[in-house]
Design a protein around this nucleic acid. Structure first.
Lengths: 211, 211
DNA sequence: CGCGAGTCTGTCCAACTGGTCAATTTCTGC
DNA sequence: GCAGAAATTGACCAGTTGGACAGACTCGCG
């Protein structure tokens, strides 16, 4: 790689590093205080930059917020693919729950930002809900109904099953503080979390599988 | 009842009406925007009172917020009693889920305020989590373990079961907007909600009952 | 080496926030 | 029917916020 390329990549890298630092800080601050409660000053402080620098990369607080939401939805879609990797109901559900639990563990702030976005009426994510998410769940509902016809699953209501999975997996991110408090003040260890994953899968599969 | 009592009750009634209007408005505004994002002006406007009137009844925004939280925790404790009404695992779990689902349906704002309170690290509810909630779940965990020993339930992890119930029941309040959007833009009808209640109970009981 | 584009930041401002206060109106007990 | 307590409210204030902007600094190419 040429020196010229190296240098131009250096500039770009600086920009990307700053943007990433700001986005990561924004995700944390928005998660804790919500859109209205978050201040650009707090985001800048957490990112270790002057406030004006934040406004250099993201002209307005709303534009920054939209970008944070966009990344979260990307990560969600990524995890959702786990549902389609295999054709057995048991395996597909198990993999999907694992993917959603891991997402909750790795991006707890993102999960909380999304939750708060929905609670304010989804002014930014409404389009995602109506188009991408709507068709995702319509399609998967059909898949679940096929599994039921094939005798892999009991005749459960597909929507109820998805809401139960979404709710439970997100709970481990959104209510991590409550879980930690009930765990003696300590966040779940990796082992406890892995065990929780297994137990959640066990209960849900037992709840819907035909036996 | 004497005229004097009638009158004094009138004054008190006015006060109580105003306080209730403010508390109801506060619950809605805090639910949508969180503590930091909520403004006393918005709460006053929704309650149909001048802002100064709000500060007459609740000296500070934080005091008002604490009172909102207190009432929510009261309602939660009320619903939690459903768990102890009967001794069969099946009946106790079913009743508890019904109570929590009904609470989510009747007090969706309260549920969201609580969720946001946890997400900001529970500065106000921490004491409740550490004392009341901790001992509640410790005691009920013991009850679940007894049911397991008695062969009423499969050997599930009690905590996982409670988190799954809390998550799912709260989801119907906190994510009501998402559910409505996926329901064609309309909130769940009373019939759909009643059906969801039944389906949730069916999946969870199937998931944990010994058969 | 030097110049222009890109990056960074201190300073400022208009709008808004929680909260105060004094003046006014409305009750209540006698 | 009146004295005073309680309730109500418009006007106001000090602190904070999102954002603008001009100038300083840095990098990379010719």
């Amino acid at each position: 790689m040429s020196a010229a390329n190296d240098k131009s990549r250096c500039r770009r890298a600086t920009r990307i590093n700053s943007e990433d630092a700001i986005l990561a800080a924004a995700e944390a601050i928005f998660a804790e205080r919500g859109f209205d409660g978050a201040t650009t000053a707090a985001i800048a402080a957490m990112a270790g930059l002057p406030k004006a620098n934040v406004h250099y990369y993201f002209s307005t607080k709303e534009r920054l917020y939209r970008e944070v939401i966009r990344r979260i939805l990307d990560a969600w879609l990524d995890a959702a693919r786990a549902f389609d990797e295999v054709d057995s109901a048991r395996e597909a559900l198990a993999r999907y729950i694992v993917a959603k639990m891991d997402l909750a563990r790795e991006r707890p702030f993102g999960s909380r930002v999304f939750a708060k976005e929905i609670m304010r009426g989804a002014p930014v994510a409404q389009d995602f809900l109506e188009t991408t998410l709507k068709s995702w769940i319509d399609d998967r509902e059909a898949v679940v109904r096929r599994w039921i016809r094939q005798g892999q699953l009991r005749p459960v209501e597909p929507r109820t099953l998805f809401y139960l999975i979404w709710a439970t997996t997100q709970h481990y991110a959104d209510f991590a503080h409550q879980i930690a408090t009930l765990n003696g003040g300590e966040p779940l260890s990796d082992e406890s979390f892995a065990a929780a994953k297994t137990h959640v899968i066990a209960i849900i599969l037992q709840g819907v599988e035909q036996r």
